[in-house]
């Protein structure tokens, strides 16, 4: 199918990549369908709305910069997107990129969980108060490096 994307204009995306977000993303509740695209720049991905070409979120795998990240959300939130096996679950954080890109941050308080089998997704709300809406990616990456030394 042809998809109008914010980062790449119109591109061809496999129909089977459509992901249903029955509850939308907080603040964008009216948008229910997305596709997950690789970004031209690793380690990012795009979550592109199919309903509104102007709405696309940059995603990152939280484990890239926080190896200790564990998804702690209510079972119900996972059941609502039909997650039966944790293996089917993809977990991302939405990235906010301000003008000064060095201050890019990831939201670990509202992780995006996708069921790769059922092709459903949602923004969950983590129950662990240690995870905030703004984790500065470069800062945390530097710490990962330090730990490795």
């Amino acid at each position: 199918m042809q998809v109008n994307t914010k980062p790449y204009g119109t591109i061809e995306v496999d129909e089977r990549q459509k992901i249903h977000f029955p509850f939308g993303i907080l603040g964008f509740e009216h948008l229910k369908w997305y596709v997950l695209l690789d970004a031209s720049q690793a380690p990012f991905y795009w979550l592109q709305s199919l309903d509104d070409p102007d709405v696309a979120f940059v995603l990152i795998d939280p484990l890239v910069f926080r190896r200790d990240f564990i998804l702690e959300v209510s079972e119900e939130e996972l059941q609502e997107i039909e997650i039966e096996d944790k293996e089917d679950m993809l977990v991302f954080a939405i990235v906010t990129i301000p003008e000064n890109q060095e201050l890019m941050s990831a939201n670990l308080q509202g992780p995006v969980v996708i069921n790769r089998k059922a092709k459903t997704g949602r923004q969950a709300i983590t129950l662990n108060p240690n995870w905030k809406v703004k984790h500065f990616i470069l800062e945390e990456l530097a710490q990962v490096k330090d730990e490795a030394c």
């Binding site: 970004a39 690793a42 990129i97 990616i137 990456l141």
Partner: peptide, 23 residues
Amino acid sequence: AAQAGTVLPVIKRFAGKKGNPKG
């Protein structure tokens, strides 16, 4: 997050690793 532009930052250790936009 939705207001950000489409030019993504380069993180050094990932530089050069290109994704496939078409998925």
